[in-house]
């Protein structure tokens, strides 16, 4: 499957999409770097989510649907992203003038990031969320990163696509 979604809200899964519902059953990264050095390309915690890194970096399309928490992804979504560094190598390459990780897969995913429930948020918070989303996508070797904001506090498939 060439499309991968991470969401912190319950959605009907579209066909031909791998989807992860972040608030449920994702262990927290312990910062051990085992996914680079001990079992390269997969997390050492075998909770069924050890391949998250590959899903985030080796798909044509990655879609993330998240609330904004302090100008970044929500905690559940961040928990998934923290588990995903196995998708890149521990080595380095320079992109956009800064140091990043060398890629494990040649695929360059397009990231579509939807932040919902934005009506109460300041412009500063939204601007920071946009920059954080972009930085994450560049770290994961994106082709492009498209960010959009939805004011509604609930979102459906129609809002997203």
């Amino acid at each position: 499957m060439n499309e991968y979604w991470i969401t912190d809200i319950t959605l009907d899964k579209p066909q031909n999409v791998d989807m992860i519902y972040a608030p449920k059953g994702v262990a927290r990264c312990t910062g051990c770097f085992g996914c680079w050095l001990k079992t390269p390309s997969e997390c050492v915690m075998h909770d069924g989510k050890q391949g998250i890194g590959e899903m985030l970096t080796n798909r044509e399309t990655v879609r993330i649907i998240s609330k904004i928490t302090y100008g970044g992804f929500s905690a559940p979504v961040k928990r998934v992203l923290d588990r995903s560094i196995s998708g890149v190598l521990p080595f380095f390459s320079k992109r956009h003038g800064r140091m990043h990780h060398a890629v494990r897969y040649q695929t360059k995913p397009t990231f579509y990031i939807t932040f919902y429930d934005c009506s109460q948020l300041s412009d500063e918070e939204k601007a920071l969320a946009k920059r954080a989303a972009n930085a994450m996508a560049i770290n994961m070797n994106c082709k492009e990163c498209i960010v959009n904001f939805i004011d509604k506090n609930i979102c459906t498939l129609e809002d997203i696509i």
Partner: peptide, 10 residues
Amino acid sequence: YVDGLPSHVL
């Protein structure tokens, strides 16, 4: 962590 605060910090 990944250009932000780690999830447990959030």
